[in-house]
Design a protein around this nucleic acid. Structure first.
Lengths: 187, 187
DNA sequence: TTTGTTTTGGGACGATCGTTCAGGTAGTTT
DNA sequence: AAACTACCTGAACGATCGTCCCAAAACAAA
């Protein structure tokens, strides 16, 4: 017999865990991974310091959980972007350019957080599947007859994003458009 | 009148400063920016702890100096790569693929350090010129009639590198070759 | 040699860190 | 009701952190 009514205590615990992850992500966006400590996370979430150690066996665990959650969100976003593009029969250039401009503009902090994940994944193999998630979503959803061209497209997206992060001002969707067009154009 | 014989004291100081920078870079390669403290750097360089605070006004200064030095080295390397390619009349595909494979293989730690610089530059504007240095070297040395294609090439290189860092095994120059060819092929 | 400058290095201070622990509360089961 | 489980939290420990201070050493200029 499966219990339908969940344990209220566990539900509260789960809720606080997600709140801690959300608070951690906000801190990473604002100050980077370096700014994440038990105390800063707890203060951001408005909970006592020891709450983090109770719900996560270590700071590293909290960091890993946060970045995995962040990667899942990004993969979901990529999924819906493709879905939107398909709905209107587009080849996707406009959607991709718009998403890039957004990632480098209003969502700049989030984008930095995602590349902190990349770098952490480079050192921690257990994070790599999470870091590759959005790549996998794209690979599985998009038909690519030209394997090489597709790899170039994926690399180009990452390159545009990380180079956009060290630009003094974020590029607009219009500026990115020709580059994205070039990346998507078949030959 | 310019003094030709430099002050022996200042010479020693300068030498130790470069030793500290070298030690810091080794630590970043091994443990990331997170592993850099006054004490770890001093231990790595085999000097007393306070040596770092004397030669660099703060830990942040040491970090910035290290990453700027790292960026300069990389720019120099790119310069010579182009020079080598030109000397043998190549279009550069082989050289680029070889350099990428090396960056993701034996020089993996160094490559991670360079992307830590990128991420730090995203948060610290004063680091951005240094982070863009190798891009500038390429831009100024290579003739590019197609502006968009060139931007795609630069983004592709960065994308291949950072994605290569989260691969479980480093790609070989042979695997990278078709992608680099595609990036360089004019249309 | 004397005086001034620069580098060196040991010691220590206060702050902050991750983590532990024990007592207390809330919710579930019997 | 009692027993049990899960969550919560304030206090505190030892470790490590960045940085400061000051006396000694090395070197240059007088």
């Amino acid at each position: 017999m499966v219990k339908l009514q969940v344990d209220g205590r566990k539900a509260r615990g789960q809720k606080r865990r997600t709140e801690l992850i959300a608070a951690t992500l906000r801190i990473i966006e604002r100050d980077g991974v370096a700014g994440v400590t038990h105390r800063t996370v707890a203060a951001e979430a408005g909970v006592p310091t020891t709450s983090t150690t109770y719900h996560f066996s270590s700071l590293d665990d909290l960091l890993v959980a946060t970045l995995i959650s962040c990667a899942r969100d990004m993969a979901t976003e990529v999924y819906w972007m493709i879905d939107r593009a398909r709905a209107r029969g587009s080849r996707g250039a406009e959607e991709v350019a718009g998403l890039l401009a957004e990632a480098l503009g209003p969502r700049r902090g989030r984008t930095m957080a995602e590349y902190e994940l990349y770098l952490l994944a480079a050192r921690k193999p257990e994070l790599r599947p999470a870091a590759r998630r959005w790549l996998d979503v794209l690979t599985s959803m998009v038909r690519h007859d030209d394997e090489v061209a597709f790899r170039v497209f994926l690399a180009g997206i990452d390159g545009l994003l990380i180079q956009g992060l060290i630009d003094d001002e974020a590029p607009s969707a219009e500026e990115l458009r020709p580059v994205v067009d070039y990346l998507l154009k078949p030959r």
